[in-house]
Design a protein around this nucleic acid. Structure first.
Lengths: 204, 204
DNA sequence: GGAGTAACGTACCGATTGGTCAACAATACA
DNA sequence: TGTATTGTTGACCAATCGGTACGTTACTCC
């Protein structure tokens, strides 16, 4: 929007910061925080080391920005799909099938960056902890909305608790998928989770 | 057993290899694979660097041995508890309450080493992948046994699929707990999981 | 008491880590 | 045409990384 506006002082940036951030996200996503070196990021972006530091600060902030971008794009896409019209149970089934789909299609499954971050660095850094929490909250909100749509008698089910369950199962599925679990196992987990949710709804 | 037997040739080892492995496990457990340096292990064990290499080979093998020890002790303990006599549903409730318990009691929760390994290095290394799979299989077997005890009409429930579900939920819970998720959320996940399993059993 | 063997202790290795510095280049504004 | 400001560049940093070479020491067996 304001790309041309506000030219600011000094020499203009020669690289596309947004594009660089996408590349950075890709590296952190596949290799994790500790597994990613600055040299990796320099190679992936084509941007010199000092320029990256000038633009982003330090490694941790690059990671945070990359995770933020992932949440704004990938997570929001999932939320939108969950809020789209359609059969709620079918949408939840789709949501829980994402880990297995990724493991099935991709040669090497890099999982969900949000889940990776949860397992990777959230335990060690409060800033990452907060960002992960925020992404989960967005997801939980969309799931809760979808769950509410299952029944018009909301007293019978507890959408908030079931949304938490879905976050938990989804996280577990992503971690298991990336660690090479059998597709059968992932399918079983998805089916049993949906069975439990279906069983909890009021018998109309 | 054969501590005194087979003295072998050469200078005897001055440190207790089993004790050193326990210390190594502790460091990997809390700091992860990449987060652990050889200096950390030297400091934790009190054993010189070259002696560690002599005894264990390299860093990855130290990790594998530590994970193996964890599975042989902690995981087996859990399996035994699940197979002990008692109300099956209550035992499953206990199992799913472990992550929340750890988060509640320990100042900083280092989680379940098996789950940490699943999320940490299993995606990148086939050997670790195999070891993780083995630990999960042991757990799954005990869970399946417990689930079978819930009902005497096994056709109505699918213990194998529900065991997979429990592994998935447990993994998710451990990752979420360590990443600082609210205790409420962990409780909700546990409750909803058990509700689903309870709902699936045949109405006697 | 050798001879053989294996662990110990230390110093060391090249490579890589995240991060910085100062010279230089490109822009806006006066 | 300065001057201020900011990005680019490439060399450079101390620290640390996983791993090793080698001389010494402690043990068993002959």
């Amino acid at each position: 929007m304001n790309k041309t506006l506000k030219p600011a002082a000094g020499r203009p940036r020669e690289f596309d910061e947004a594009k660089a951030l996408q590349d950075i996200r890709g590296v952190f996503w596949t290799k994790g925080y500790e597994g990613t070196s600055l040299s990796d990021l320099v190679e992936a972006t084509g941007v010199r080391r000092a320029s990256l530091y000038k633009a982003f600060g330090n490694k941790k902030q690059m990671y945070l920005r990359a995770l933020e971008l992932y949440e704004r794009e990938a997570i929001d896409d999932v939320c939108r799909a969950l809020l789209d019209p359609g059969d709620p149970l079918q949408k939840l089934d789709w949501f829980l099938s994402l880990p297995g789909q990724a493991r099935w299609h991709d040669h090497d499954d890099r999982g969900c960056f949000l889940c990776n971050a949860t397992a990777d660095q959230a335990a060690f850094d409060d800033d990452i902890k907060r960002r992960v929490r925020e992404g989960q909250a967005k997801l939980a909100h969309a799931l809760e909305q979808t769950l509410t749509d299952i029944s018009t008698t909301p007293a019978a089910i507890e959408p908030a608790a079931q949304a938490s369950l879905l976050i938990g199962v989804y996280t577990g599925l992503r971690i298991l998928a990336r660690s090479g679990a059998a597709l059968d196992m992932l399918d079983q987990i998805r089916r049993e989770t949906l069975r439990g949710i279906d069983a909890a709804r009021p018998t109309a």
